[in-house]
Write a protein that binds this DNA or RNA. Structure first.
Lengths: 141, 141
DNA sequence: CGTCTATGGTCTCACTTAATTACCTTGTGT
DNA sequence: ACACAAGGTAATTAAGTGAGACCATAGACG
């Protein structure tokens, strides 16, 4: 045993591995680990949808809600604030008669669109295969 | 108002927008939407860490646990099974004296490493800026 | 013989987050 | 006065996560 554990499946991804595994084996994972930090942020239910919406340009609160019909006001507020806190989006209040608030991507927020896009592309290319795999798995049980 | 909502922040991401917004505005989001499907899967707390671990080669159950020290057996089992169900990893049982089980990426599983890598790269490049933004945000409140 | 260790799990229970529903505040048109 | 909209908060409920006991098997130890 223990002989097959060190083989490299895809040599091209060595750099990836370094990034994924930048922690001491056998020690608790660093809670500040940037990878987990960002994936925990954008991995929630709504962040990517909001970022994708704001990628088309600035939106007011209600415009984001119209663009993502099945989000509750509560989660929209909270997710927008989390994204603002992380510097990915900016919030601007206009003192109009009913005050309006505009949300837009910051320069930092724009930079996440590229890696996000490759993930989205992968999802589109792979979701048929994934659904097939699920079907096969469920039938085998 | 309503004049600033259609402006495009980054024209290069129009394709992204198409992918993000492949649903009817005003209608409930398609629960089969491939983007949400995959992001809900790999966006959980452990999937990416497991994929990153298996990117270095096949691992046995306990080897994955050693590589990710702060995962509980329960979540390891569950996440491995979810990934197996989606066809991203394969599970092979060897009938040794205490049966050993090997997990490895499938060809489909290997294909997600590339988009995942760009996200990880982004996280490493941006986490300093994000932490600064958080600090500034928290001090302003 | 009885106990100990090891693998790869499962099961139950408690706890921490995430998410939905309902409500509040301010202003505006009728 | 009344309904309505924007933006947000409070209280409630659902889901995700974790700690630890337990299981089946088999070989080594004493």
């Amino acid at each position: 045993m223990g002989q097959g554990e060190a083989k490299v499946t895809a040599p091209a991804f060595d750099a990836t591995v370094q990034l994924f595994a930048d922690r001491q084996p056998g020690q608790p994972v660093d809670p500040q680990c940037p990878v987990r930090d960002v994936l925990d942020r954008i991995g929630d239910k709504w962040s990517t949808l909001i970022l994708g919406t704001l990628a088309t340009g600035p939106h007011r609160f209600s415009a984001v809600q119209r663009a993502i019909p099945d989000i509750s006001k509560r989660m929209l507020t909270q997710t927008l604030r989390d994204l603002e806190r992380d510097g990915l989006i900016a919030r601007t209040v206009f003192p109009t008669k009913p005050p309006s608030v505009e949300y837009r991507l910051t320069p930092l927020g724009v930079t996440i669109l590229e890696p996000l896009t490759s993930l989205v592309r992968w999802a589109n290319q792979s979701h048929a295969a994934i659904r097939e795999a699920r079907l096969a798995f469920d039938q085998a049980s």
